[in-house]
């Protein structure tokens, strides 16, 4: 709790940051987003659109995790990395399973198109 023993300039998380890291992170992220933009504009078929967008997104996020946040397995950062690895599946599960469940719910609980078209509206 005490701060009096500290020389904050020597803290590993302070030492970790370098200009090169930040330039790289920014350039890779920006390049990935520009790439994603052009992929989306070229209107590929849906499956390859998903794959390519997910790929560029992954590149941007990995670059940011490694270079902005400085996540690695060093003593200073290991627990951030571990907690991220434990949490990310939950992030994906909560979105993915929801989408999967609703793909079924929508298919079965949406009224038949026949009924809807025969309606008075």
């Amino acid at each position: 709790m005490g701060t009096h023993h500290y020389d904050p300039t020597q803290h590993p998380e302070v030492r970790q940051g370098t200009i090169l890291r930040y330039v790289l992170a920014t350039v890779i992220s920006a390049a990935a987003m520009v790439g994603a933009y052009y992929v989306a504009m070229s209107k590929p078929p849906l499956v390859s659109l998903i794959e390519e967008l997910a790929g560029t997104l992954l590149v941007a996020l990995l670059a940011q995790a490694a270079l902005y946040f400085g996540l690695d397995v060093s003593r200073a950062q290991i627990w951030k990395s571990v907690s991220l690895v434990l949490t990310l599946p939950l992030f994906i599960i909560s979105i993915g399973i929801t989408v999967w469940a609703f793909s079924s719910l929508y298919g079965r609980t949406m009224p038949d198109p026949a009924i809807m078209s025969s309606m008075a509206m």
């Binding site: 009924i115 809807m116 025969s118 309606m119």
Partner: peptide
């Protein structure tokens, strides 16, 4: 005969 569908549509609206 469209009563059931009309009830659904009304709820949707």
């Amino acid at each position: 005969p469209k009563l059931f569908g009309e009830v659904i549509t009304a709820a949707q609206m």
